[in-house]
Every structure is written in C-alpha cells, then in structure tokens.
Design a protein around this nucleic acid. Structure first.
Lengths: 331, 331
DNA sequence: CTGTTAGCGCATTCAT
DNA sequence: ATGAATGCGCTAACAG
C-alpha cells in the first residue's frame, strides 16, 4: 500500500477542488467534458490511485470476501479455494485466504473476525466451538461449504454420512469382509462424519473394520500397522481421494497390485481420481452440482442483503464412480 | 465487514474518552489498571472490533500481501499459492489472491495495482508489458517467484532455459531421436523459456522435435495429432509435471505402456511426480531450495524497508530426478 | 456543473 | 493517567 499521491494533489495540479476529482472517479457523467480531461491528465501525470482503505471506511464495503480452510497441500482444500476464488473474482470481489493451522485450530478465527471482509466462506476445517461463535459475533455473514455444518448455519455439502454408508455398502457388495479405513484420525468434521457413516453400516453388515488414524505425516507407519495384521484387510476405504491415492502409493511400494491384491476406495471424486494412471473408484457429488459456485452465490446474496431469511441447507446425496481400483474379493 | 460498534460506543458505555479506548487496544501499559478493566468490560459487552480500514487509513499499513498467479487448477499455481500463503500468514500477513484470466491476461493488473496490499508476489503468469509497468507505477514493492522475470526486477526461479536443455540432453543420452514437446503453446513465460532451451539443445544434437501447442482444454486432440504421425516420437517432454501426467493419462488410454512404448519427462519435480502410481522422471529444484519461502522473505524485507538496494536475482540450476517413466529408446 | 462542508473510525499529538 | 482536538483520504450532501 504505497499511496504517494492523494486526490488533493490531483486537485491542486488540475486547478479544481478535491470533490471534483472524486466525481471524475465515480460520476464522470456529472462533470464537464473539459474539466474531465483536465483532471484526467493530472491523474495520469501523478499516477494517482484512490486509497481503498479510505473508500471502504466510508462505504463500509471492502470488496473483499474471506476464505477459511485447512492447508492447501490437501487437494480438497486446494480445490475449494481454487473454485471459490474464481467465482468470487468473477463477481468483482477480491479474496483473502486464511489457513487454519491444524496444530492451533482456534487462532485463525480471531484474525478472520477482525478482517475487512464483507463475507466469509468456510471450507473444510477443524471446527472449534468458540471460533464459530466468534464468527457469528463478528456480524459478518458466512456460509459453510464442503465441511459439515455445526449449529444452525447456512451450508452446502456432500452428504458425508451417506457417503460413508455408500462406501461400506459397495465394499460389502464386492464380498469384502475385512476392510480398512484411512482418515479417521483427522479432525476435519467431514472426515469423522464419513467414518461414522462407514463404520455404522459396515458393522451392521458384519464386516470387520481396521481403522487407522492416519495423518499425512505418518502415513506409512499407519498403513504398515494395518497391513501387518494376520487378518489384513482386502479393501481399504479412505476419507478422501488424496488419502486413497496415498494408500495406493504405499501399497505399490509394498508389492501389492491394485485391485488384484487390494481394493481401494476414495471419497470426493477429485479430478485426479479419473486419471488413467490412478483410476480410483470413488464417491462424490453428482456431476451437475457445483457446491463452490452455489456457496459463493449464496454468500454474495447475503452480502447484498438479498433473501436474508431464506434457508440454505444443502446436504447432497452422493454418487458412486466405479473405476479400476476396486474389484470383488477373491478369497 | 459489518461494523456495528465503534470505539466511541465503547467509550460512552465505559464512561471514558474515545482516546482511552484506543489506548486500551494499543498501549495497555499506559492506562490505569481499573480503567483498563472497565473499558475491557465494555469491549466484551458490545463485542467491539476495531475497524481495519480506519486503522490502515492512518498507519498506511494493511497487513495484506497480494498474490498474482494463473488459475489454481494448474498444480504449479496451486503449489505457489499454498506455500506462499503459509509463509506470509506465519509472518502475520493476510494474503489476497488475484487470478489471471488466461483469456484476458491484462485486466488483473489494474485491480492489483489499486489494492491495499503492502507488497505483491508475482507467481507463474502470462507476462503483459503494460501490466508489469502498472505494477511498477503503483509503488507497491513486488517480487517474481517461479515465472521468468522480465526487465530488471527482483526474482527467484528455477533456471527454465537450463531445465529445457537438461531435458533434451537426458533424452538424447537415452538415444531418443524423435521427441515430442508438450506445452509450448501456453503463454506463461517460463513454459516458453523451457521450450526454447529444449529446442535449441535438441536441434544441436540432431534430434527431431514434434512440438504440440497444448492447452489443458484440447489436450487429447493435440496429443492425437502428435502420435498419429508416421514417425511418431519415442519420448515426450512436457513443460510441467502436470502436462506430463496428462500425457501419461492419454498414452495409457491409447494403449501405450510407460516407459516401454514411450518415455515421458516432466519439469517441476512436483510432489505428485514422486507417487508410485505415477513415478514421473522430472527436472526440478535442488531439494534444499525453497523458492516460495525465499520470495516471501524478500518481499517482507522490502515492505519493512530492509535492504532496499540489495539485489535479488536467483536463477537456480536444475536437477534431474530419474524415476520410472523414462527408459532408453528400444528402436 | 462545481466548490464547500461534514464526517467515516481510529491513532496521535497536545494539554490537563 | 486521561480528555480534547486533529487529520488520514475519501464520498456525499448541500449550496451556489
């Protein structure tokens, strides 16, 4: 923010009042043609740029929306921000990003509550009660997108519990009776919800579950422990496609063939999962649903004061995308 | 930005002057203990948050750095922003992102020049002369990271020309004489530089080059055209790992085995390339170099007014990472 | 059509 | 230690 020249400087050089400079910037039609060119010349000469802070101090609008999500190294977070930013920018908003530190999930809420943002888009995060309360108290409108929603807030998301159920049902249909789960240890709310949906259904069908509290950091150790068991699983379901991909990476390194030796199932239907070198069977949104666009649209409507009272609770039924990482149990 | 309550409101409730409220926020040690608690109580009660716009209007500091890069669907851009944002946030800065629309590469520079940002980090983009000039004129300090640098600006980047040369040399050593190139048609400056380095070296070694102006959108058509030739290549080099991965995806779909039928080589040494299901031979930075951290550090030093005159021109020698997507030519 | 005036919310003198 | 006054750069009445 290097403001070297103010509208007063321009006014002096152009020999007009500061208000006229302001008019040239905002209401050009309400100013005489020759003064307009005169002022514009001064603007060019001094390379004048209006101070955004002063503007928003008056208008109470910053033109900024805030994004809140986990580290962008996680492909789910990357996709969330990529898509949301694109839509917001399309609508004329600048986006500022706040990354939640998994080791201190609470701190980010303070900064975001103090920000100049006109609205907040909450992506996949580790929920913190006081943090959500802080958001609410800030008075800034917010919408959840992708993560599970806690409390009575607006949200749009894949039905995570149903996705877990679908994963269990699918593996059960393939006759897998001992199955692993990867991702249960992560704090993101939607991971847990997916796991609970999976666990519940799998248990009700008499399947045996090896759960692994897998973080990205110690993935190999976690999966080693799972596969070292005498009754090792014949299939692994993961909370996300990225975790499923990591599982495949591990299994290849340890000599397994996919899907002959092991079936692997993801959740998310990420672009990556469709690539032929991965070809991951996964569970995700119907292709015609774009939750990122829907979330941004809702948030901007809130910012503009439209439909302040209409409800926005979109929990979307998942679909199964069968590819080459899964097969019937051979044993 | 929903400011419901100002420092004046707090002052009234606490029975003090507005200046005292300000002191409580910024110089707590310079205020009596009991007035401090009294004011704090009022702050809590009214849920007061200082207005960031008013603050930066006075201090001329926004605590914001701007990022400029291409669409985050490109993994290179995603990595750039992921890493940069993390470092900036670590240092107490909020990051706002500006995405360059490849179809209108010039427009983004206007918005970014007007932003409140204290500094700009320029990532992989399509360079536009007037845009760069606009950045310079804004008076906001900026640093290039990853992309090729144009003019006498501060930058840190892989040596893109040398990377292209290294790619050609490596394929030549593997006895490939007819080789394809993917990515030459993209506008990002570093893609072009990689291509020129590749082309020059390949030609000097008598190799035959099939260049494909590949965009992400019509990738299949472009690669089909290349592989339909009678003298189809035995190896393909790509401007980025992501393009190389797409090439592999295509080749698998068309029945090729990697590397038996075709060698594929990327540039970037992305995290993805090391995964066993891809195992992409690639060219990238030495593992001990972190250009994102270096760029952010340099930018913050500029913002803080440190070393205003020291040079920052880091063009880094590439390394070769041999994995399983490449093999000697069998023909 | 243009100039004058009055704040937006806050930090910072200067008095007291 | 605290209050009154000033101004950051700008927009929005209000006069003329």
């Amino acid at each position: 923010m290097a403001i070297l020249v103010s509208s007063v400087d321009v006014a002096k050089l152009a020999g007009v009042s500061q208000a006229t400079v302001s008019r040239v910037m905002n209401n050009p039609e309400k100013v005489n043609a020759e003064t307009f060119t005169k002022v514009n010349a001064a603007i060019q000469e001094l390379n004048y740029r209006p101070n955004a802070a002063a503007r928003s101090l008056i208008s109470r609008k910053s033109g900024i929306v805030a994004l809140l999500c986990g580290p962008l190294e996680d492909p789910d977070n990357a996709e969330f921000s990529a898509r949301s930013i694109a839509y917001a920018q399309e609508k004329g908003f600048i986006t500022e990003i706040h990354i939640q530190d998994p080791t201190q999930p609470g701190t980010v809420f303070e900064a975001i509550s103090r920000s100049q943002a006109e609205g907040i888009l909450v992506g996949p995060i580790t929920p913190v009660g006081t943090g959500i309360a802080s958001l609410k108290n800030s008075g800034i409108p917010f919408v959840f997108c992708g993560a599970d929603q806690h409390g009575e807030h607006r949200f749009v998301s894949l039905d995570n519990a149903a996705s877990g159920k679908l994963a269990a049902d699918y593996l059960n249909n393939l006759s897998h009776t001992v199955v692993g789960w990867v991702g249960g240890g992560r704090n993101e709310s939607h991971h847990g919800t997916r796991y609970r949906g999976f666990l519940e259904t799998a248990k009700s069908q008499g399947m045996k579950i090896c759960s692994a509290a897998g973080a990205y950091s110690d993935f190999d150790g976690v999966l080693s422990a799972m596969m070292a068991r005498k009754d090792r699983p014949t299939a692994i379901a993961a909370a996300t496609d990225a975790l499923a991909a990591q599982a495949i990476d591990f299994l290849i390194a340890y000599g397994y063939s996919i899907p002959e030796d092991m079936s692997v199932l993801g959740i998310g239907n990420s672009p990556q999962s469709a690539m032929n070198y991965l070809s991951l069977t996964t569970i995700g949104l119907p292709p015609d649903r774009d939750i990122f666009k829907e979330a941004v649209t809702e948030l901007l409507a809130l910012i503009h004061g439209d439909f302040p009272n209409h409800s926005f609770n979109e929990r979307i039924e998942p679909e199964l995308f069968i590819r080459n990482s899964s097969a019937p149990n051979q044993k």
